[in-house]
Each structure stands twice: as structure tokens, then as C-alpha cells.
């Protein structure tokens, strides 16, 4: 070749340890909550549950660059699956959780197959509809869901006679689940499967021309994402012991989108960082009293201005981790 490689020789990669900073941050936050317990433990527990959900959302929206406003539907299926099977039918939590996840993935396959043929805005609208319809079902199907009243008396998560009841026990369990989810995302990222998703994200035409079955990979990402959402929904009801339609409403869509973008869409650490930051920020602004929401909003805007690709991207070489 005549082209000499010396013109713009690539720089050495930055020291890889900076990539560990987001994880260190998460460990410090969880450790703090563990020591302090009480309210802090509750806030961080919810953040970790959101992190599971957002990790799944990121597979579909970050890795494969698709849009879904309806993943809350799958969290609802997982959550209500667990709630009804344990509280009403007396199942133990683990099989109820597995059943809920399977039901959510099945539902995702049924709606995803036609929906993923839609493009851009139509896919977004279609998924939004899925979320709204599921919400209506949780409200109206009173014989099973008890409507707005909700279902209480859901047992804490446990296996056999061992139950996770204490705040700290829940934090440990949730941390392990989040770590496993992040580990899965990291492995997917660096695999043939994950590269195919990135290819779909980069150029569907080019991916297709290289033999990648684009609709199949989109569907797989959607199903995975639904599975994570259902896991998060199920974890939530077992941690709180109660579920009502509001839990998986439109609010969840907005909060999780914020977490995804603040943390860093398409990165591995982003969902966890985003979930923690977005959960903790309003708490740190409590001192502002009436201006709490204003300060929170301003902080989000500043984050998006100074870290437009998300916080985790600041620590990842080339904006990827």
C-alpha cells in the first residue's frame, strides 16, 4: 500500500482505570446507603431497581438505537405477575418472578413482531400505545389486579426458607442483580451478537448487506429489554410489598429516559450511573425546599449541556465503554 500510516498516528488509549470510576462511584453510593440504612437505603434500593430496567432499555435504545416508550408495559407484566402469583395464589417469589419474566418476553414477542416493522416515529407511537394499553389493563382488570387499590401483602424476595427482609439484605441482593445485569451488558457489547446490534444502530442497509438479519436482531434486543424490564418490575413489588397501576405508569417512562440519557446511552456503566444520579439529585436538593424541582431541572439541563453523551461517556475512551 502506498498510503503511509504515519500522518495521523493514533494516540495511546487513555489509562483504562478511568473506566472504573463510574463503578467506584456506584460502590461508594451503595456502601454509604448500607452504612446509613433507613431512608437512604430505600432511595438507593429503588435506584438499583431502576438500573436493572434502564440496563435493558439501553440494550434496545443504546446498543441497537431503536426507540421504545412502552417498556413500562413489560415491567408491569413482571410486577403484576409476581404480585398476583405470590399474594393471590401463594406461589413463592422465585417461580413467580420467572413466570412474570417469561410472560413479558412472550408479550414482547407478540407485539414486537409487527411493531418492529414500523420505523422512526411510528415505532415510537406504537410502543407508547403498548405502555398505555397495559396501564389501562392494570386499572380495569379488577378481578385480578384490584384496579387502583392495588395488591398488597406481596412477600419479600427469597429462595426457600431464606428471605430478604432487612434494608441491607435487599441492598446486597439488588447490588448483585445489578452487577449481573451490567456484566451481561458488557459481555453482549463485546460479542458477535453485540456487534450485530451496533451494526443495526449504525446503518441498517450496511448491516443487511453483510448478512445481518436486521429485523431478527431488533426483535432479540426488544425481547431482552422486555426481560430486564420484567425483572425490574418483579424486584420492585417484592421489595415494596405492594403494587398499583401508578408504579408502572408514564412517570416511569420519563424517569427512565432521563436516567438513560444522563448516565450515557450506549455505554455499559451509564444506566447504573444515571439511575443513581437521577434518584439522588432530588434528595440532595431538599434543602432548597420550594425550589427543589427548579434546582433539579437546572441540574439536569447542566448535565446535558456539559455531558451531552452522558456521565459515563466522560470516563470511557471515545465515548464508549
Amino acid at each position: 500500500m502506498t498510503i503511509s500510516p504515519s500522518i495521523t498516528s493514533p494516540e495511546r488509549r487513555p489509562f483504562r482505570l478511568v473506566g472504573l470510576l463510574p463503578w467506584l462511584f456506584a460502590a461508594v453510593v451503595v456502601g454509604y446507603a448500607m452504612v446509613v440504612g433507613g431512608y437512604a437505603a430505600t432511595v438507593v434500593s429503588f435506584a438499583l431497581i431502576y438500573a436493572v430496567f434502564v440496563t435493558g432499555l439501553n440494550l434496545f435504545m443504546g446498543f441497537a438505537a431503536q426507540v421504545s416508550f412502552g417498556q413500562n408495559a413489560f415491567a408491569a407484566i413482571g410486577g403484576y405477575g409476581s404480585a398476583v402469583l405470590t399474594a393471590t395464589y401463594g406461589w413463592s417469589p422465585l417461580p413467580a418472578m420467572v413466570f412474570g419474566i417469561a410472560a413479558a418476553v412472550l408479550a414482547a414477542a407478540i407485539v414486537g413482531f409487527p411493531a418492529l416493522r414500523l420505523k422512526g416515529h411510528y415505532l415510537a407511537m406504537g410502543t407508547l400505545a403498548i405502555g398505555l394499553i397495559t396501564y389501562e389493563i392494570t386499572v380495569e382488570w379488577q378481578s385480578v389486579t384490584q384496579g387502583y387499590l392495588g395488591i398488597s401483602g406481596i412477600p419479600p424476595f427469597g429462595i426457600g426458607s431464606w428471605e430478604v427482609t432487612s434494608d441491607r439484605g435487599q441492598l446486597v441482593m439488588l447490588s448483585l442483580v445489578v452487577a449481573a445485569c451490567a456484566f451481561a451488558a458488557a459481555r453482549i457489547r463485546r460479542s458477535r451478537f453485540g456487534r450485530a446490534l451496533s451494526a443495526v444502530a449504525g446503518s441498517e442497509e450496511a448491516a443487511t448487506a453483510l448478512g445481518i438479519d436486521v429485523s431478527r436482531y431488533k426483535l432479540m434486543a426488544f425481547l431482552l429489554s422486555a426481560g430486564f424490564a420484567a425483572l425490574a418490575g418483579s424486584l420492585f413489588v417484592h421489595v415494596v410489598g405492594y403494587v398499583s397501576p401508578e408504579v408502572f405508569g408514564l412517570h416511569m417512562v420519563i424517569v427512565t429516559f432521563t436516567m438513560l440519557y444522563v448516565g450515557g446511552i450506549g455505554t455499559v456503566a451509564g444506566p447504573l450511573v444515571g439511575a443513581l444520579i437521577v434518584s439522588l439529585l432530588p434528595e440532595t436538593f431538599r434543602a432548597f425546599k420550594d425550589y427543589q424541582d427548579l434546582a433539579y431541572g437546572a441540574a439536569l439541563i447542566l448535565l446535558l449541556i456539559y455531558a451531552p453523551r452522558g456521565l459515563a461517556s466522560l470516563f470511557a475512551p471515545r465515548g464508549r465503554s
Binding site: R192, R195, A196, S198, A199, A201, G202, S203, E205, A206, A207, L210, G211, I212, G266, R318, G319, R320
Partner: peptide, 19 residues
């Protein structure tokens, strides 16, 4: 040209190895 712009040069070729 339709590259996968966010992927590294190496990963682009790895996607090419998909089949």
C-alpha cells in the same frame, strides 16, 4: 460510504465477519 461510524475500524471489519 456506509460505515458503522461509532464502532472502531477493527470492529467494522469484525461486523464484516458476521457470516
Amino acid at each position: 460510504v456506509k460505515l458503522f461510524e461509532d464502532l472502531s475500524v477493527l470492529d467494522n471489519v469484525k461486523v464484516g465477519c458476521h457470516l
